[in-house]
Design a protein around this nucleic acid. Structure first.
Length: 857
RNA sequence: GCGGGCGUGGUGGAAUGGUAGACACAGGGGACUUAAAAUCCCCAGGCUUUAGCCGUGCGGGUUCGAGUCCCGCCGCCCGUACCA
């Protein structure tokens, strides 16, 4: 009997696949194409279990599709620009480029042993000049089509380091390095006009049937289409009126004040005139730029002293307040506040003692307001201070009649607005794709010429390495790179030193994979053949931004002729997988010198006496289950260690087995061990069957074949529906059946070969070995997927549970097609039913054929 | 704050509105062994015992029937436009 030596067989079969080049994708119009893509990783330098799970899922699909006669494209690359490389350069010297490419090498080394069916010949990194040069060409094309423009936008400003901070570099309102209070500051920045596509991106969501409903809903809410009323409040001082937008014009008679954003032109004018206003606005600008920071900040207001007239009653004057929770980016940057029916306005009015005037109340009558009354728009309410429509109507009708009336009377206009803002792509950083424009004193902003692309990042500065020890963007202080000739007039000019948001890099890589070495962004023929991505797999954290930006990019690329019209929605099907988690072991008896918790590695602790303890010191451990793997919590499990102990097949089997793919999976050492034991059982089973006399007769051939066909049906269904954990449960079941079977050698051999095939998407190496051992032809990776024989799946009898009043009381085994009346008769005659009925007639009997009988007593 | 999701034994989880706990892990018992490991077999939601009762985060509702659908809470996770 031989032993299962994973490392031997895995290396052997990986070599065989490579030699046969079976995963290299070529256009082949005789077969249906299938493009499967997992979201490409950031090259952190460490592969983690989340990657393993993500890529294994994609690999199962890719290998299954290969077996079902598809021409498969399954590429891999790296999302290689971004802040961690600059942070590493800051922390330990070196250059982001060296750090990144060395990490990529490491990660490829770590990925190869997994035996993924990837076409490595198509690999690229977004920091390759060949890639980002084509991205610069796309930018120029977009610019020409009017899809790019410049405007002012706010950034996080660290006043001590004098630098722009990313949102994640702001911790509790302070810069992460300097500790200074962060301010919001305006800069001129580049934008993609994604808002041109708001309606289109919204309505097209309906066509994405193979996307999770939750992702479509999240995008729908993010785009945020709303219909409301836009109108003006006349100022009592006769100056320019204040224009507001509201989605609840029906509550206009509950207006308490008019609020403007601290960034509103009127606020800016007052800021210039009054120190008090300037101080207040400065206070408002403290803190980060995130929506969360702004929305959760304590509400601040300043009464400007300005007064406006209510549009429905010229004698009614309302004060104008500057309020920190009003965003200049949305609507007109000014609102009217109705505290009675908006919780934010309610809190503000309570704080500043402004009137709270109810407009609507529940039809059944109102209590005194202790918080804003906010009924849903579909709910029928009583308008006690309405001005349009009937007294009792739904909020929706109230809004519509209010808009109609305003339009008829000429003081307002119904307007559709979107929450979606244009995509700011400028980053004041080095390690990104340079924006290919030049600032010329005479010609202004001039696009770079395409023949000058790529505008490559400088590696050094006058022979010295780029310096990251000082805050700010090294491109800004790099004269020999920054100084250039104007592409238009040839006079001295300066390059744009902002680089692109890394979301730009990931918004078209899927298209580039179809022709990764093309001299243009895409090769239209290759793109037309391979697009769309048939199955895209990635984390739910990308549900909105990455996927929305990619949808926009596909449209913009289509307009510029880089993608066919059919690729406007680039991802036909989307699957969002969960994270890999691991328990955290927190020391329950001790903190470190800074008063922070101490976390222990899994191998530092042991379980005994019903508790968990540190092996060395015996200190008690608090176990926090299912936490996201994180370096700082010491709960990261290294896939390489698992692979070297058990092999890649074990790691692959385990990450798929225990949890539904869309949910988080908890990594447990015992789970990996169990997966390994199972693969050993399969190995031994193969050995045992291989040693049987080929002519040996046995019993139960028919039964084993039936189970085999059921396994084919169930595993196929599981793989096709992303029910990998369910497929694996079936494979456990079938393995147990086979190992107990006394069937003839020929049938057992057929069964183990089928088992190897069914396992091959998950455990490709072991399956190849079994396949070869049992005399299978060629590679199992190329073998056609088994098809279940329907005639073997038919059952002639069925066991029905019998319920009385919805409670299970017994069961009944009957012929499959026995008619309802007969089933009812048998059920009523059942001893358990008789006992409950006590001779009384049932009120009702429900027979669901093939499923259940329920007797209502 | 806002948007989205999730919550089932000791653990991971299964269950087109139709037998809650499949399949595993950990646990208990047994076989094999001088012994152990490995392997194999059996048991196993809780509480009472031959039959029941209680059980899918909490509280309501719809239904012949709810883990599943609806309403209201609680907790955790993701996103919140410069983390990728």
């Amino acid at each position: 009997m031989s032993r299962y030596e994973a490392s031997d067989i895995e290396a052997k079969w990986q070599k065989a696949w490579e030699e046969a080049a079976i995963f290299q994708a070529k256009e082949d119009h005789d077969k249906p194409k299938y493009y499967v893509l997992e979201m490409f990783p950031y090259p952190s330098g460490k592969l983690h279990m989340g990657h393993v799970r993500n890529y294994t899922m994609g690999d199962v699909i890719a290998r299954y599709k290969l077996s079902t006669g598809h021409n498969v494209l399954h590429p891999m690359g790296f999302d290689a620009f971004g802040m961690p490389a600059e942070n590493a350069a800051m922390a330990s010297g070196g250059h982001p480029k060296d750090w990144t490419y060395s990490n990529i090498d490491t990660m490829v080394e770590q990925m190869k042993p997994l035996g993924l069916s990837l076409d490595w010949s198509r690999m690229f990194a977004t920091c390759d000049p060949e890639y980002y040069g084509q991205q610069q060409a796309l930018f120029l094309d977009f610019l020409e089509k009017g899809l790019v423009y410049r405007k002012n936008a706010v950034v996080n400003w660290d006043p001590v380091d004098m630098t722009v901070l990313a949102n994640e570099q702001v911790e509790a309102g302070r810069g992460w390095r300097s500790g200074a209070l962060v301010e919001r500051r305006e800069l001129t920045q580049w934008f993609f006009k994604i808002s041109d596509y708001s309606d289109e991106l919204l309505t097209a969501l309906d066509g994405l049937e193979n996307w999770p409903a939750k992702v479509r809903l999240m995008q729908e809410n993010w785009i945020g289409k709303s219909r409301g009323l836009q109108f003006s409040f006349e100022r009592t001082d006769g100056e320019e009126a204040i224009e507001v937008y509201t989605t609840r014009p029906d509550t206009l008679m509950g207006a308490s004040f008019v609020g403007i954003s601290p960034d509103h032109p009127i606020a800016k004018q007052l800021e210039a005139e009054s120190q008090e206003v300037a101080d207040f606005v400065a206070e408002c600008r403290k803190g980060g730029t995130t929506e969360e920071a702004i929305e959760t900040a304590p509400k601040l207001g300043y009464d400007t002293g300005l007064r406006v007239r209510h549009p429905l009653d010229p004698n009614w004057e309302l004060p104008v307040w500057i309020a920190n929770f009003i965003l200049m980016d949305y609507g007109t940057g000014a609102i009217f506040a109705c505290p009675a029916h908006d919780q934010r306005d309610f809190e503000f009015a309570t704080k500043y003692d402004l009137p709270i005037i109810p407009v609507v109340e529940p039809v059944e009558g109102a209590d005194e307001l202790t918080e804003a009354y906010v009924p849903t728009k579909a709910e029928k309410v009583r308008y006690v201070r309405g001005f349009a429509g009937t007294e009792e109507q739904t909020g929706e009708d109230g809004v519509n009649t209010a808009v109609d009336k305003a339009e008829a009377e000429g003081w307002g206009e119904g307007v559709t607005k979107f929450r979606l803002r244009d995509w700011g792509l400028s980053r004041q950083r080095y390690w990104g794709c340079p924006i290919p424009v030049v600032h010329c004193p005479d010609c202004g902003v001039v696009p770079e010429k395409k023949e000058n692309l790529p505008i490559a990042l400088p590696y050094d500065e006058d022979g010295k390495a780029i310096d990251f020890s000082v805050p700010g963007n090294p491109l800004d202080r790099h004269p020999s790179w920054r100084d250039c000739a104007c592409p238009s007039c040839g006079k001295p000019a300066q390059r744009e030193t902002d680089t692109m948001d890394t979301f730009v890099d990931s918004s078209w890589y899927f298209a580039r994979f179809t022709a990764p070495r093309a001299e243009t962004p895409t090769d239209l023929e290759a793109a037309s053949y391979w697009m769309n991505v048939d199955q895209y797999i990635g984390g739910i954290e990308h549900a909105i931004l990455h996927l929305l930006y990619s949808r926009f990019f596909a449209r913009a690329m289509e307009i510029c002729g880089h993608l066919p019209e059919s690729a406007k929605e680039p991802f036909d099907a989307l699957f969002t997988q969960g994270m890999v988690t691991h328990a955290i072991y927190e020391n329950a008896e001790r903190k470190n010198e800074n008063g922070r918790s101490i976390y222990h590695y899994p191998n530092e602790v042991e379980e005994r006496d019903g508790g968990v303890f540190v092996k060395e010191t015996g200190e008690r451990i608090k176990v926090i289950p299912s936490a996201k793997m994180s370096k700082s919590k010491n709960n990261v499990v290294d896939p390489l260690a698992i692979i070297s102990t058990y092999g890649a097949d074990t790691a692959r089997w385990f990450v798929l087995s225990d949890s539904p793919p869309e949910r988080d999976v908890e990594w447990t050492a015992s789970g990996a061990e169990a997966a390994y034991k199972h693969l050993n059982r399969v190995w031994n089973l193969c050995d045992r069957i291989g040693e049987m006399d080929p002519d040996a007769k046995g019993e139960g051939d028919e039964d084993l074949l039936r189970e085999m066909h059921k396994a084919i049906r169930d595993v196929t269904l599981g793989v096709e529906s992303f029910g990998f954990n369910a497929a694996i449960a079936k494979l456990y079941g079938f393995t147990n059946t086979l190992s107990k079977s006394k069937a003839s050698a020929a049938v057992q051999k057929q069964a183990i070969k089928t088992l190897a095939q069914l396992m091959s998407p998950m455990t490709p190496h072991l399956s190849e070995d079994i396949w070869a051992h049992q005399g299978g032809e060629g590679l199992v990776a190329n073998a056609p997927w088994p098809i279940a024989d329907d005639s073997m799946l038919v059952e002639d009898s069925v066991t029905l549970p019998i319920q009385v009043n919805g409670k299970r009381r017994g069961e009944l085994t009957v012929a499959k097609d026995l008619d309802k009346a007969e089933v009812e008769k048998l059920a009523l005659a059942h001893e358990a039913v008789q006992r409950v009925l006590e001779g009384a007639a049932p009120k009702k009997v429900i027979v669901v054929p093939g499923r259940i009988v329920n007797v209502v007593a």
